[in-house]
Amino acid sequence: MPQIAQLAETYSSQIFWLFVFFGLTFFVIGRGMVPKVMDTVAQRDQQIAGDLAAARTARDAADAEEEAWRVRENENRAAAQAIIAQAKAEGAAASEKKVGAAQKRIDTKVAQAEVSIDEARNAALAEVESVAVEAAQDIVARLAGVIVTKPTAAKAVKEAMAHG
């Protein structure tokens, strides 16, 4: 077993060179390079965390923006509804006024027409009366040979007409 057989002659060189090369490994690689490698990893983790945080804030901002937009939108919609309602009310009032005016015009026209109808009827009745008076005079004259004056005839006709 060379590990034991050569122990006396080789232990010092083994220990010496192990210290040299393990020392190099420790100081150059372990102390010099490994912290840099781990630094890079830490930096990357930090970057990822930062990016995630930034994304989160951006998303929150977008959410807030959307919420504000929704509120604004609702307000605008309410305002539009109010304008529409007002316009509707105004329109209704205007049309009511117009309808009222037209109604009034129609009413006066109807009243005028009724008056003229009444006049016409009265005129016609008067005509009928005068015709009846003349007819009554004529009839009396022919049947009784009596000549009645117009006012008398008229009075008789009027009485007859009043009694129907």
Partner: peptide, 17 residues
């Protein structure tokens, strides 16, 4: 007074490093 011969063992320590 201590022997520090560069042996095959030391060589492979060097290679490992």
């Amino acid at each position: 007074g201590y022997n520090i011969a560069f042996t095959n063992s030391a060589l492979w320590m060097l290679i490992t490093t």
